[in-house]
């Protein structure tokens, strides 16, 4: 099976709990509707129930957060303890960002907030009020992969793939920041993303390649 076929196959997997295929999610840029679990009328609540998971606990300190995720406005009631990572994964069904360590040590949860890469596991969801979040699901232009996504495929920059969404989000930021100017600098500025499979050689090559295509190399 060629690499392209493998990607096709894996995209057919169901995204459990939401009735969406991963391809659908990618296509729609993660179609999210405004979600407010307690403050809106029955119709919007019904629509929300299709799309967002309910809060698993009754929050002692509920907080309404309004933010933009992959270009879509989102309004969700959260418990104040919620991280951006848990908001994305558990409430909005965007499971691209991974919970590796949950302590800011591995980089698997990397997303962009207001154009800068952050560890979403150590970012309080309350902090993205009024902000803009971009995840791996929002990176491609419909079916056209972002140059960094394509470069990771072309350079075999992964094995198991678990760290890859975080690697790619960090890598895109690394290029945009102007920190992809040499192999040494790429290694330094990507050191917050751990790959236990050890695909580092491919990752550095992919970033060099994508940087030239993104016009920053």
């Amino acid at each position: 099976m060629s690499k392209d076929e493998w990607v096709e196959e894996s995209d057919k997997g169901q995204c459990s709990g939401f009735g969406l295929t991963r391809r659908d999610t990618l296509k729609s840029g993660a179609a999210i509707v405004a979600v407010s679990l307690s403050t809106q009328g029955p119709n919007s609540a019904e629509a929300a129930a299709d799309r967002a998971a309910p809060l698993p606990v009754t929050p002692q300190y509920p907080l309404l957060v309004r933010t933009t995720v992959n270009g879509e406005m989102v309004e969700v009631e959260i418990d104040t303890r919620t991280s951006v990572l848990d908001l994305l994964r558990e409430r909005l069904g965007l499971t691209g960002a991974k919970k590796g360590c949950d302590h800011g040590q591995c980089g698997a949860c990397t997303v962009h907030v207001d154009g800068r890469r952050v560890a979403s596991c150590l970012t309080l969801a309350a902090k993205v009020e009024g902000g803009e979040v971009v995840t791996i699901e929002g990176l491609s232009d419909g079916d056209n992969l972002h140059p960094m996504q394509q470069a990771f495929i072309d350079h075999d920059a992964l094995q198991c793939g678990y760290c890859t969404p975080g690697q790619i989000m960090a890598a895109v930021a690394c290029v945009v920041e102007g920190n992809a100017t040499s192999r040494e600098r790429i290694r330094e500025y990507m050191s917050g993303n751990i790959c236990r499979c050890g695909a580092y050689a491919g990752i550095v090559a992919a970033i060099e390649d994508a940087a030239s295509k993104m016009g920053r190399g």
């Binding site: 800011g104 980089g107 990397t110 800068r116 890469r117 952050v118 690394c174 330094e188 917050g192 993303n193």
Partner: peptide, 12 residues
């Protein structure tokens, strides 16, 4: 500064 943490954490 740049030898501390990772760029993600330094942004936060």
């Amino acid at each position: 500064l740049w030898k501390a943490a990772s760029q993600q954490l330094r942004n936060m």
